[in-house]
């Protein structure tokens, strides 16, 4: 019997349109054997959380390159909590200044991947930390 695939939601919160990184990660994770759902652009935190619950994903990856991560990422954590879905871990990526990383982690973002991270590093992190 085959093992159930880990299901990942890759999400683009906010108005930022930079989707190169999100799409590369989505494709890389799919090639690595995960099941990947991509939200497409311009999603509100509410929409992302609803999709995550509806699709019953194991983990959410959020990407932001336009400076609004300090509002959008913690807001997603907050909403997951409100919906009783705080068992879904969230990781983030994009243009995230170093000083913001500990603040985001304190808010509940499990890991942050900054530019230059090989796709493999994200793959490995999910394998190590997420159970399907």
């Amino acid at each position: 019997m085959s093992e159930k695939k880990i299901k990942v939601l890759i999400a683009k919160p906010g108005l930022d349109g930079h989707d190169r990184g999100a799409k590369i990660v989505a494709r890389g994770l799919r090639d690595a054997g995960f099941e990947v759902v991509y939200t497409g652009l311009h999603q509100t935190p509410e929409e992302i959380v609803a999709t995550a619950i509806q699709e019953d994903v194991d983990v959410i990856g959020v990407s932001s390159l336009a400076g609004a991560h300090m509002y959008l990422f913690p807001r997603i954590i907050e909403l997951l909590g409100e919906q009783g879905a705080d068992d879904i871990p969230v990781f983030g990526g994009g243009i995230i200044p170093e000083d913001d990383i500990p603040v985001l982690k304190k808010a509940g973002i499990r890991e942050i991947f900054t530019p230059g991270t090989p796709v493999e590093a994200t793959v490995n992190w999910i394998r190590e930390h997420i159970a399907s």
Partner: peptide
């Protein structure tokens, strides 16, 4: 981003993005 996407600073869509 809000200006680029056609939203004013008081729009719920603009939360956290004004002037960023």
């Amino acid at each position: 981003m809000p200006t680029l996407m056609g939203y004013d600073s008081d729009s719920p869509m603009a939360r956290g993005e004004v002037g960023k």
